[in-house]
Design a binder for these strands. Structure first.
Lengths: 197, 197, 197, 197
DNA sequence: GATGAATGAGATTTCATTCAT
DNA sequence: GATGAATGAAATCTCATTCAT
């Protein structure tokens, strides 16, 4: 029913990111988003099925683009370690570039609404797959331990990055997210323990 | 104003965990919680300031207890590595014991409402402190690398555990959470890389 | 925010006068007013900020109109005495013409709510000003005593008329209000005392 | 059912005047009045049938006392004119002595609630009777015009005094109410017109 | 007589969504 | 395609009143 293309579709998405980041999803009334996008309330419904669909579409649009970019960026890198580092960098760098989007992604998107969660997860799955691919590659290349359960490693990688961005959005807005890339990468690769001499 | 003690206070908390886990915070009407707790709607407001306060109080109550238990459990352990393992175990075991609470904790509590987030974070802070203490201890004991930024390590530890529980709640309800304890611990300690021979 | 014009605005006002007169402000639920006006409950809030605003707007609308009419009616009269009489007549006649409005004006409007009182007084002030003007004119024309404090005279004029209407609304609904015009006018002009011979 | 005597009865009345004057009848919760009176909420209901009954009783108690005092004060005066002046004085003086009571009397008591109005009117009736008596006396003594309708004169007297107190309570709290006694008396007796030479 | 914890009915207001223009 | 006025369902919270102690 909803036509998910066109200039207005894009401006509604942009308006939604801005308004939701500022007011929170609950206080981001459809009329507010419409106003920000300079369209009539009813117009929103020509492009989106309902309010939840705005958030889901926004997430798909933005995170989908991110995944594509990330995938393209790691492709030329040969070593799994480098790909992992690039992934960490991309994640943190992208988020630090668009704070409104980060707010929406880290906070507003975690709404309890089951409809939402399902839509969100569908997109996220592709990102988790990308992480998995890096882990598998590392194992193949003999640099990551073969006995590591990829699901566990994936949880570590995604969980850590996610928590890093959430902290930044919530409490550490002045910190430089990108400065965490190497420390995180190092920790993932080498773990906590002191190297044996 | 609200009297946060007594038998009724406790039963409202229990009822709230149950109802919110089942219906989601938004669909967990105060009247539903009251009914589940076998009290009148108005009685809720003798013990809680408003609906948000139920969720915050519940979180404080439950997570507060968890932190105290966890702290008591790791205290007798001498090695930082063992404390870390115990922390991982406690986190995953506790959550797997009370799925309703896990749902509330991982999903419903992530509401965008600023009031909520502030109250939630206050409690969470104590947990993050506990993690920090283990990291510091590990450095003192010379088993964790001194150059590791504790804030980064903390993000890894908390982020990974949080993501593990979220995955379990959302997609992997049949998996055994506790079976992840050692793999996660191992990964934290040793990292991804193949040990040098 | 609320758009205070249009056909629906007017019909809500009329409905409100009717419903409030009949049930009292407190028992005049917004839904009752909406039903009487044949609009949806929510529509009320497109035209009024809140329930109090209905009462205030109604008062402004109705009393505002009354004041304009009264002012227009006394304008052509030259003598202050005649103007005073016309004012008395207008006041009592208008009220006797619209008993519902009189009820709302005399009783429901006297609610203790500070918001209300402020809004009401703002309108009433214009009426008191009109009375003042007549008093001043009478002094200029040398028919009203120059030593009379206009504030005192104004209180007498307004207080008496107000009390007359209140009595009529409350206890003397069968009495003819307009029959009081001359007795009141005579009393204002000549006072209680027996004329010297 | 309710026992309308005793020390606690009196302190509840006093507390009610204070609390209602300060917060308005609607915002003067029974529990607030109970607290101010240093009794339990339930105790109120040993002395009053319901919340309205507090306001009515308070009015009866206070205005009843006022009427008795006023009646006693005018009794020794022989001339109707003097009695009228004393009545005006008593009315304005008493009110200016107890601003809290004046607020309750002039504003809170005008609530739209029919139960209330009926109870209030019952008391007021006695005051209106007192005014009537003075008017009749004036006619008997040949100082007030025999053709004056006493109901009209009564409306003027009561309406003016009532309006004077309301204005004082609402807008002119700094004015000296008692200073209005003679101007009002003079106006009642002599009217607005310039005396014939 | 006094207490005060518990009750539960009830109404305003919001806002996603529709649909006639 | 675009508009925006109208809809109406739905839920939190208050507070007068009760009654077991």
């Amino acid at each position: 029913m909803a036509k998910k293309t066109g200039e207005k579709y894009q401006s509604i998405i942009e308006a939604a990111v801005k308004v939701i980041a500022r007011y929170g999803y609950h206080q981001a009334q459809v009329s507010k988003i419409a106003k920000e996008a300079s369209v009539a309330d009813g117009t929103i419904y020509l492009y989106f099925d309902n309010k939840d669909d705005i958030l889901i579409s926004l997430f798909k649009e933005k995170v989908g683009t991110f995944i594509n970019t990330a995938r393209a960026r790691i492709a030329p890198l040969e070593k799994a370690e480098d790909r992992l580092r690039e992934l960490i960098y991309m994640h943190l760098w992208q988020m630090s570039q668009d704070r409104d989007l980060a707010i929406v992604t880290q906070i507003e998107t975690r709404q309890a609404n089951p409809n939402l969660r399902a839509g969100i997860y569908e997109v996220l799955k592709h990102y988790l797959d990308l992480i998995d691919e890096v882990i598998f590659l590392g194992k193949e290349q003999g640099v990551f331990r073969p006995d590591i359960e990829h699901r566990v490693a994936r949880k570590m990688i995604f969980g850590t990055l996610d928590e890093a961005v959430t902290s930044w959005v919530m409490n550490e807005r002045n910190q430089n997210l990108v400065s965490l890339v190497d420390p995180i990468h190092n920790l993932f690769i080498n773990g906590l323990k002191v190297a044996k001499q």
